[in-house]
Design a protein around this nucleic acid. Structure first.
Lengths: 350, 350
DNA sequence: TGCTCCTGTCGAATCGATTCGATCGCCGTC
DNA sequence: GACGGCGATCGAATCGATTCGACAGGAGCA
């Protein structure tokens, strides 16, 4: 009662050696049915529910836990359909392997360096926080934990799962260019997580933390050349609305004819802002996004966007992590994106 | 290079015993600064990044990981703002304690009984899946893992964090009754996760898996007596829309004057259905929800709802789990809810 | 009957750290 | 000068299972 029985106790009770008992619980076929039954009976008698995962993990050298870092506090990270879908893709692969997913949120100020050192992880996936100088990342590297980053920094010995951000926004930009748009503005996701919003200058851009943001900007510039860009403080709909209002609530001759947002969430906000200002989409202004998330509350409006294979990205990341744990050395991967033209882009107003 | 250094190696290199080295890494004040430095220097030389969490866990008897069960597949569970907020509340407490949150989703058919047995958990929280006969729950109980259930079944030795569902819907029902409503219908969350939807009969109701659903139904009946109820197949907006259409698309004299949904998500769907049918809310029909989630896409519409302290619920569950791990015996808890009257409830049409 | 081969079971080492009680040396005090 | 006390360090047991190589006994074959 006071303490849970051990495998050794079960073995003793069944009159076999601990090794044999262990074989039974690991489902080895090399143990006689009668012996197996005797051990299981002893286990039932003693109320033994199977080997202690901690001890087994130590011996095996693996804990069966893979960590996923999401940059922000959970509450905000999970408002982002892309983050959720990514995690879903990850669990889809991990689950059947009997591997658990541990969430690590960089919420409470200090990114819990303490915590990271104390938790048994077989590998870690940097899911939505591709910082280039994340201390948590460094620490895990030092500990020798296999690492996978999703759209993160390029680092030695770290597997990178990427998407072709730049090509995506380039095609999108070309689409808008073909429609006659010349006055285009970009609304980006945060360059750093410091709550800043507003126009992006060179200095700010140079200090960008996130590679994907840079790439999505470059794709647009491949077509339009230098383009005014505005930064949102977070990837949230109301951020998009606020930024959209600032972009669109100007005299018509100075108003952009198209707004390219770096995410569907932000684009949805811009649509809202346009509606608030009485602007028609796409007649008065075209709006485009990125991600291909299905934002059900948009109703019949189909956003013009760059569709990325988010779930595939999650699965690939998880698979890479599993491979690393198994001792393999999976290769970096860049997944393709596709342009999806919806009802929010049209010819530039004359 | 081939294998990571151990604490013993560091100790040897520093010329101290393993025990002393261990003291250094656990930050004990009882070790001389010069010794400490020597050990740390040796660690740096060998590239030792701190004690192996697995070994430490085994010795300590704790892994620093707490599991959270979310019933459905992640993708669906996280569409529910309540689930997300609950998890956020949990991490809010766990994070500062250096404890990680492991997500366990009952996704892939078999609820991964295998997985549960292999993962080192200090405690588990059943977050959004209060099944009364969950095999995972039984297994964890057998293993002696401390358990907390949120709005789940009442079980011996399991801490229950609850909210006052029944009182909440009772007050809501009284509000509607006071407004003159007499023809009221209820739209419930799933009674079981079997994908069934439609009117609920006695047999179905008797086989309900979820206590909170029952309680929310009883609260309404406390005021209105037996009331027709319809079940949604999941807690999703479009489920609410489908059910709402079925409820409202009938001749006016048979149409309910008020629909009480068991969640804000479902209520949002009903609002959508009403809009689709050209019904005004609340002039033609009143709609109420439950949760107090802020569904930003509702715009200016403020849903009449029962507000539950979701984050507080998460924090309480996490705190209880921490207490259990520490050897305490936290008490069950029932948190209060409050009625919030919005713009979607008004006098019954005559 | 004797030898080999195979199968089921056992012993013992191992995974890597933590921790309690013991020890050793040093300083202060009587 | 001897002894008490205290603080830093060390030894060794322990956490609970896994696993490899050894071993014993029975079956098959010559």
């Amino acid at each position: 009662m006071s303490t849970r029985p051990t495998l050794a106790a079960v073995a003793a009770c069944a009159g076999v050696s601990p090794s044999t008992a262990s074989l039974v619980f690991s489902g080895s076929p090399r143990v006689t049915p009668s012996t197996r039954e005797r051990v299981l009976a002893a286990a039932a008698t003693l109320g033994y529910a199977g080997p202690d995962p901690l001890a087994a993990s130590l011996r095996r050298g693996r804990s069966g836990v893979i960590g996923a870092f999401v940059g922000e506090r959970l509450l905000y990270a999970f408002r982002d359909p892309v983050a959720v879908q990514l995690l879903d893709g990850i669990t889809e692969v991990l689950g059947p392997h009997g591997v658990g997913l541990l969430l690590l949120a960089g919420d409470t100020g200090r990114p819990s360096t303490e915590q990271i050192g104390r938790i048994p992880l077989d590998a870690a996936i940097f899911a939505t926080c591709g910082l280039e100088d994340d201390p948590a990342l460094d620490q895990l590297r030092a500990r020798g934990v296999p690492l996978v980053v999703v759209e993160g920094p390029v680092l030695d010995g770290v597997v990178l799962i990427d998407i072709d951000d730049r090509r995506g926004t380039r095609e999108l930009a070309r689409h808008l260019h073909d429609l006659g748009h010349r006055r285009v503005e970009v609304l980006t996701m945060p360059l750093r997580l410091d709550g800043r919003r507003g126009p992006i200058d060179g200095a700010r851009r140079a200090r960008a933390h996130y590679r994907d943001v840079r790439h999505r900007l470059e794709g647009v510039e491949d077509v339009f050349g230098p383009v005014p860009a505005v930064e949102a403080a977070s990837n949230a709909v109301d951020e998009g609305t606020a930024a959209g209002r600032a972009l669109l609530d100007v005299p018509a001759h100075r108003r952009p004819t198209a707004v390219i947002a770096h995410s569907d969430m932000l684009a949805a906000g811009v649509l809202q802002a346009a509606a608030d200002l009485g602007l028609r989409v796409p007649e008065d202004v075209s709006v485009a996004g990125f991600d291909g998330a299905d934002l059900h509350w948009l109703g019949d409006t189909r956003l013009t966007t760059v569709v990325q294979p988010t779930d595939e990205k999650g699965r690939a990341a998880a698979q890479a992590a599993m491979d690393l744990v198994a001792g393999g050395s999976p290769r970096d991967l860049t997944l393709p994106v596709t342009l999806r033209i919806g009802t929010t882009s049209g010819p530039a107003p004359s």
